[in-house]
């Protein structure tokens, strides 16, 4: 019942927006290629469902691999950076570079290095999504209570034991936050990567489909592809959220509050 009530406002808002959109487009007689009404988009999605699903699965794979690379490499980088203040000061500024690099501008480089297709697209998804993982994991490790560090030192804990029994569990809530952000970014990175580096023949992802729909002025199909892309991001985000909840709900206040609120 409470779930239903919390779902009401956004669903209602969606219905209103779609209705107003449909009505305005029809009343003002907007050309289809400029702004198709929701009904046309739904029709395009239905007839092109096979192509859309195939493209979505290609993009999903690249985004997922890029995301997993970010999770692993980002966490490992944070562990290495946290090992020493000097190392952090020397290298952290360059990880910020990963966040600010215009991915569209270096995507051609990725094609040169990795060849057009899946690998370049995966690397693109990785580059775009790795920074929030590094930043949040590092912040998490840094936020371990000093008294607990003292405790581990007092009992002669090894570096490895301190990492696995203290730092990683302490950093987990903040790592999950980083992964949530990375999930959405990985999908964006994959699609932008496909714009430049994706195959345009059979087996292209949503990025390719968006480009070809645009060139053919199939704006309805373009909208449908964008819709699928955002669903993809939402799906990955939801998976991370669920995993985070599963890992943290037992002990972390953030997850407990979520449970109490619903």
């Amino acid at each position: 019942m409470r779930v239903l009530r919390s779902l009401m406002p956004p669903v209602l808002a969606l219905v209103v927006i779609v209705a107003v959109w449909e009505a305005l487009v029809r009343v003002l007689d907007v050309p289809l290629y400029l702004l198709p009404p929701p009904s046309a988009i739904a029709r395009a999605a239905a007839t092109g469902l096979g192509d859309l699903a195939l493209a979505a699965s290609v993009t999903a794979r690249a985004a997922l691999y890029g995301f997993l690379l970010s999770a692993v490499i980002g966490t490992l980088s944070a562990i290495v950076l946290s090992a020493s203040r000097v190392l952090e000061r020397a290298l952290y500024p360059y990880t910020v570079f990963l966040q600010t690099v215009p991915i569209v501008a270096i995507a051609p480089l990725l094609v040169l290095w990795f060849g057009a297709g899946m690998r370049a697209v995966t690397v693109s998804a990785f580059i775009v999504s790795v920074f929030p993982v590094i930043a949040n994991a590092l912040a998490g490790i840094r936020s371990v209570e000093p008294a607990l560090r003292d405790l581990f030192r007092l009992y002669g804990a090894s570096r490895f034991a301190t990492l696995t029994k203290l730092e990683m569990p302490s950093a987990l809530p903040s790592l999950v936050t980083g992964l949530r952000v990375a999930a959405g970014l990985a999908v964006i990175g994959a699609i932008v990567g496909e714009f430049v580096a994706g195959f345009s023949d059979s087996g292209g992802g949503l990025g390719i489909l968006i480009l070809s729909s645009y060139r053919q002025l199939r704006t309805d199909l373009l909208f449908a592809a964008v819709f699928f892309a955002s669903m993809l991001g939402l799906l990955l985000f939801g998976l991370v959220n669920l995993t985070g909840y599963f890992l943290l709900s037992r002990w972390h206040p953030s997850a407990r509050e979520t449970r109490a609120a619903h």
Binding site: L148, L151, F152, Y155, K165, L166, P169, R250, W251, H252
Partner: peptide, 20 residues
């Protein structure tokens, strides 16, 4: 108290022995 919030009471109390 500075306990590890993800460990139950028994595992918290056993921590020093675990580390050694």
């Amino acid at each position: 108290a500075h306990l590890l919030p993800w460990r139950n009471v028994l595992e918290n109390a056993a921590l020093p022995l675990e580390l050694s």
